[in-house]
Structures are given as C-alpha cells and as structure tokens.
Amino acid sequence: MKSKLIIAGLILAATVSYLVYAGVSQGWVYYLEVDAYLAKPEYRGQTVRLCGRVGAQGLVRDAAGLTARFNLLGKTHEIPVVYHGVVPDMFKPGCEVVVEGKQDKAGVFQSTMMLTKCASKYETEDHAKRLGQRP
C-alpha cells in the first residue's frame, strides 16, 4: 500500500509540476512602472502590464465610451496610451490604473485591458485625503 501511495504521489507531483510550468510559461507578464518600462528598450516588443497615473492633459474619451486616449504618468516620464474597450467607471484623471498591452511602432501603448485602482471598500486615509481634495 505504501509503495502504491508513493507512486500515486509521484504521478500527481509530476502532473501538477507540468501544469504549473505550462501555466507560468504562457501566463505571466512583467508588471512595471512607467519609468522602468521606458528605461529599457528590451520591453518594447513584449506585452506588459504598466502601472501609472492618468494624466489630465490630452485625455480624450470617445463619446461612444469604447476608447480612451491619455498619457500614463510615471514619476519622471510619461507614455501615450490608447485603450480599446468599455472604460471602467472609476477611470478619471489622477486615478491610478494598470493597463496591459504593448507599444506600437509610433510609440503609442495599445491596450485592451485596464484595471482602475481607485475603487475600493478598503480605502485608507491616503485615499480619503485624495477624495477630500475635490473642489
């Protein structure tokens, strides 16, 4: 019985290791700040997740609500982004967002996935302060 258990355990371990390997090899993306992304040209051709703040200048939302053009701000640099899809409710200038996609030849970051990080029930004081600054 013991040897059977060991064999079953080994088969299981091998299967799961393979699944995890397969999952990780096709299922991961770099998660970068805007500055770090722009600093290294090697990221250029890859799909990555970029995190930054939405710039107020140059923000254009298509009236139909299915595209948004904006500048994603890092600490020192910024990058133009075009997002295609339903714009999340919490998207607005100053909001922190994560966009997934890659840069096209013109240097514009083309994205089809966006997460906004402003909405939460777990807001801390810092966020409350930002809300408090509204006119």
Partner: peptide, 24 residues
C-alpha cells in the same frame, strides 16, 4: 516571489489559473 527571485516584478494572467487550476 518574482520580485525576490528576479529583478523584475511579474504578475500571472488569468490564463495561468485557467491552465493550472481548471484541469485539477
């Protein structure tokens, strides 16, 4: 994990879970 093991932070996409968790 990736921040500790490499210099680049990485995230897994949803298809990681779909590949690994769904069959199990």
């Amino acid at each position: 994990i990736s921040r500790v093991m490499t210099s680049h932070p990485m995230e897994v996409k949803t298809n990681f879970y779909n590949t690994v968790v769904a069959p199990l």
